[in-house]
């Protein structure tokens, strides 16, 4: 290309006709066009589907395909009735399918705080932020009826939804649903505890806070 330009510049000296001059110019432009044609986005936009990429191939426009009815993916043959339905022989069970360790409860608290607090609030009283914005309030976890409900009931409600609550099955894994159920039990305990439930070494702290709060309240006009 450079060569072409160089020769082009010498037009007057070499006695090349204006027609040839023009032709050379065109050849030059053509060369640039061919080089630019090399600038393509093949690697940027590869012929593969990334998550949620639309598709013109399927009628519904989605590249992600629904599971064929009856298909069971590897590792998703859910034969453990208690773990995946919260029931034993068809009856809602109060048993947890695996022991609730401290780590499980902490994971349950984390999941509860993500998925449940918008409505059920951090203490489980059913007055979460979305309820304050007009969502029908769910019952408090501290009602007698729910304190006596079997653990499998909470699992079932998370899985299938209840009343105006939608199913959370797509958002929370079965194991995590059990951990949330475990954490709800912990919340229920927390709201019905008596001083004797607290280890003696920690009791002083509670009463200390109480006297402070009372002192604070008394100081208020």
């Amino acid at each position: 290309m450079k060569f072409e330009l160089h020769r082009g510049r010498g037009v007057g000296n070499t006695g090349v006709s204006p027609f040839m001059h023009c032709l050379r110019g065109l050849a030059c432009l053509g060369g640039i066009a061919i080089l630019l044609a090399g600038c393509r986005l093949d690697m940027h936009i590869q012929p593969k589907y990334l998550p949620y990429e639309p598709s013109n191939f399927f009628n519904d426009g989605r590249s992600e395909r629904p599971v064929v009815p009856g298909a069971v993916a590897r590792g998703q043959l859910h034969t453990d009735e208690l773990l995946y339905t919260g029931r034993e022989n068809g009856v809602v069970s109060d048993k947890f399918p695996f022991p609730m360790t401290r780590a499980d409860l902490e994971r349950g608290r984390e999941r509860y705080n993500i998925y449940c607090t918008p409505c059920h609030d951090y203490t489980g009283n059913g007055q979460g932020m979305i309820v304050q914005r007009g969502f029908p309030p769910p019952p408090s976890f501290h009602l007698d009826s729910l304190r006596q409900a079997p653990a499998g009931h909470f699992f079932e409600v998370i899985t299938n939804g209840f009343g105006s609550m939608y199913s959370y099955a797509a958002r929370v894994e079965p194991e995590d649903r059990w951990r949330i159920a475990g954490y709800i039990r912990a919340l229920q305990l927390s709201q019905h505890a008596i001083l004797q439930d607290v280890p003696e070494s920690d009791r002083a702290k509670l009463t200390e806070n109480q006297t402070k709060a009372q002192g604070h309240a008394a100081a208020q006009p």
Binding site: L50, P51, Y52, P118, I130, R133, G134, F135, P136, S164, M165, Y166, A170, R171
Partner: peptide, 25 residues
């Protein structure tokens, strides 16, 4: 964004997630 902790893709919520609240408010 439910899959952000376990997948390369954070996940754009399905409409069902929006409707969890907006079926009522």
């Amino acid at each position: 964004h439910t899959s952000v902790e376990k997948s390369s893709f954070a996940g754009v919520p399905p409409t069902q997630t929006c409707m969890t609240c907006h079926s009522q408010i």
